[in-house]
Every structure is written in C-alpha cells, then in structure tokens.
Amino acid sequence: MAVAETAAPKAAAYAAASDAVPTVIADNVNIIYKVTASGGKGTAASAFRRILKRQDRPTIREVHAVKNVSFTAYKGDAIGLIGRNGSGKSTLLRAIAGLLPPASGAIYTGGQPSLLGVNAAMMNDLTGDRNVVLGCLAMGMTLAEIEERYDDIVEFSGIGDFIDLPMSTYSSGMSARLKFAIASAKTHDILLVDEALATGDAEFRVRSEKKIKELRSSAGCVFLVSHSLDVVLDTCNRAIWLDKGVLRMDGDVKEVVDAYNEEATGKR
C-alpha cells in the first residue's frame, strides 16, 4: 500500500495543475455482480432437489470486482487502465458507462459515456453498411447526419468492399475496426475503449491512436483498457493501476507504467 500512499498526493497535484473541468467522478465505488460459474450436475433431478431443499442456485457466485475506488477525471484526459487479467478494469469501464450500477458509492459523469468493447458485437447477421446505419441511429444521429458521415466511417474502418457482406463473415480484427469507426463517428463526451485496438493491425492501430488523440482534443475524455503498455504510453496522459479490484496507483502515465512494470518483473 506504500505505492498508493505516495501516489495520492501526486494525483492531487496533477489535478490542481490541470485546472480543468471534471467529467467523471468515481466516489468510493464498490461493484459486486453475480456470475454463473460452472458446477452442479445440470440434470432435471438435481434441479428439482435444489428447489425442494430451497437452496440457491449453486452455480451463482458473487464477485466483488471493484473495491473502494475513487478518482476524478478531467476534460481532455486520456486515462489508461492497467492491471492484470481479472483486476476489474473492464468492470469499472462498464460501471462508468452506466451499464453496471455500483453496489455502493457513486459514479458521476458529465454527458453520456459510450463503451466500445471488442467482445461487444453488433448485429452479426446484417451487412456492414446496415450495421453502420443502425449503430449511428442508436447513438441518436439523424439519417442526414449519417449520410454525411457514412463515407468517412467506411473509409476510416478500412473495410473496403467487405462492407456489403454480413458481419458474421468478418474477422475479429475487421469487426473491431468497424465498431471503432462507428463509435468514433460521433463526438462523445466520454469514450470508453476496452481492448478494441488490440485486434487491429499495425496500420489501424496508428490510425485509431490518432483518432483517440483527436477525440481528446475535442474536449472529450477517453478511458482506455489495454494490456499493451506501449499503446497506453502512446495515447494516454494518465494511468490508473488496478490490482484485484483495488486502486493501486493513479497519476502520470509514465510513473504508473514504470511502477507496474517494476512489480511485474520483480515478482518473476
């Protein structure tokens, strides 16, 4: 916990220096959710016995994924969330997006956050161009706006002729590119990116990093979950390190990544 203690005043100094408007405030957030774990025999007889004995479903388990996390993000911030697998990074993003209400504490946001995740598919039976139109309509754009932006979106995604094919035929990299292109067509107040850039090729990664910087400058705030520390270093100005749901460190991206690296290599 020594790291967290030294990090706290640094984060405060950082916030005061930037002298900006807060866009996301997490106040002592705890997130607990139920998951269906494997277990139980799964036969009709065992299910019936369970009901007779008035037991809870054995396969439902509660996970305390995020513990007492507090931070404040400001306009123009690009924050990288780092940590090992299962440390609560994606869960925290979904809570910021308002898709997973915290069990206690509160998350305040200015404007509507949009979550962009790689495993969040759109409509796979439909062609790419229909997905573009539907996705934009769902985000609240008008048909005229979509017509205006359509070419840019397709251009940016780099899908090319495949846009006429159903999304189920796309490779994971292609659908990630298209989803990122759709989500970034609108200027978001808060954009949450969950590993979406990892599957793209090198050329797309460069383009999307540029796009994230653009979104940042248009007064938005970007959160980025990534296991690639290089991507975090390149695109973010600040980083938050989560360890088993606890906030370990919050501050300048370079310092946090260095500390994280040190621990990762030190343990080995």
């Binding site: 408007v21 807060p22 866009t23 996301v24 405030i25 106040d27 002592n28 007492n68 507090s70 404040t72 809570a95 910021i96 997006a97 308002g98 898709l99 997973l100 209400p101 915290p102 504490g105 509160a106 998350i107 305040y108 946001t109 200015g110 956050p113």
Partner: peptide, 27 residues
C-alpha cells in the same frame, strides 16, 4: 466501514459533481 475522513471526501466529491453539473451514470 469507511472512516470519517472518507465520508467527508464523499460529501466533497458529491458537491463537486453537483457544481459541474455531472449526473449519476447509472441513473
């Protein structure tokens, strides 16, 4: 479980959220 210092911080954060017109994300 949270200490007195933490609850003071909570009030401060809520006030800041209010000042800048932020709303609860899952409301």
């Amino acid at each position: 479980m949270s200490t007195a210092a933490e609850s003071a911080k909570t009030a401060e954060l809520a006030a800041m959220a209010e000042r800048y017109g932020l709303s609860r994300s899952s409301a």
